[in-house]
Design a protein around this nucleic acid. Structure first.
Lengths: 209, 209
DNA sequence: TAGATTGTTAATCGATTAACAATC
DNA sequence: TAGATTGTTAATCGATTAACAATC
């Protein structure tokens, strides 16, 4: 795997390739061309080949790509062959829903712990993940290696909790709060999921296209 | 407001402008320059001015932009001055969480109804939204104008339900199922929200940057 | 008026698409 | 071998950035 600057557009297409290739694998299609993938992704054969060529030579002239091999390679490019430990910060309805909804184990993620302020929740489990007192977060983080903090606290405390996570040395926050966390990008990686942004984009397209 | 082809990149920045301008309004900053906005968005003054200029002349030379006026104009560009009716299809943990979490009314969205198969849920309310039998969906859609279907059913039935919605003439689906719905883009507008895609992007950046 | 900042045109940069030799 | 399809280089297209006249 080469180590180069990859544009955000390419990075955002990588999960789409995973999705396509898994659908093909499910249908037991063990061979695929850039043209077929392009059609599935509403892209072009050129772009598909350019994207893959950034990371390696995964295909064969006159043949195409082996579905499963290509899938494994793209997974490796993203880093899905490594295990990533996740902590859930805030077990409100969103945190709970994501815990129940997402198949983390399928892609080598381990949800190690969840944290909340509510004493009614502390001590209970969701999907086998124990909920701890958020006051124990700091000591937990010292004892355990957490790669990604899934931030699902209420917007009112989002910035404050995020700053604490940053101080604790967490490397990445998956931010569902809708708040701008305002942390230095050289210290911590922030991935925002904004439902409103998505709804606004939908609305623009609905009214203007 | 001009009617032109606007690139996806610009469309995706519009919600970010809304967010910035609302934060400025909250801080009672009633005047803002393209340079200030660029800093907040990690963009450039040129890009900010280019973006706005696509839709109209919202600023004044030597002065900048009036925060609230610009906010109202960008909202109008997106279509947020109109009311949009939403129906929630599937009241599992995700549907429920989004209903509780998102402040729809603030941006002129009305969640008119929710639908589910579970007889325990049918007849009850969440946040003042009544849950109806999904078998009554078709007749409901005939009687009521719904702009956006929020699809939060399980992945297993996603395609089938989406096809029904399309047949019923729904113009847009906000798709949280993680499934490719496979509907013709000239018939219906699909906005996908994929948690896994977001997590994969985060992971790539974590491991490669 | 002088200073500041827009709106817009021109220049640059990067991403997408096209083309084709290599080769399975 | 002939046909198909990659990997890669070159051409095109579009988006971002820079520059500056207009003007508040």
């Amino acid at each position: 795997m080469k180590r180069i600057a990859v544009s955000p557009n390419v990075i955002n297409r990588l999960p789409k390739y995973i999705n396509c290739l898994e659908r093909l694998k499910w249908k037991e299609v063990d061979r695929v061309s850039s043209a077929q993938l392009a059609e599935m992704l509403e892209s072009t054969p050129s772009q598909v080949r350019q994207d893959f060529a950034l990371f390696g030579n995964y295909g064969a002239q006159g043949y195409g790509y082996k579905t499963d091999y290509l899938l494994q390679e793209i997974k490796a490019v993203i880093g899905l062959n490594m295990t990533h430990n996740i902590a859930v910060i805030g077990v409100g309805s969103i945190g709970r829903a994501l815990l129940e909804h997402i198949d983390f184990n399928r892609y080598n993620y381990r949800v190690c712990a969840a944290f909340d302020v509510d004493s009614d929740k502390i001590g209970s489990e969701i999907k086998g993940v124990e909920i701890y007192d958020i006051n124990d977060l700091k000591s937990y983080m010292k004892m355990n290696k957490i790669d990604i903090a899934m931030l699902t606290v209420s917007p009112t405390v989002a910035k404050q909790v995020a700053a604490q996570l940053c101080d604790m040395g967490v490397r990445a926050i998956w931010n569902f709060t809708g708040e701008a966390l305002g942390l230095p990008s050289d210290k911590i990686l922030i991935q925002n999921v904004s439902f409103l942004d998505s709804l606004f984009t939908l609305t623009y397209r609905l009214e203007n296209e």
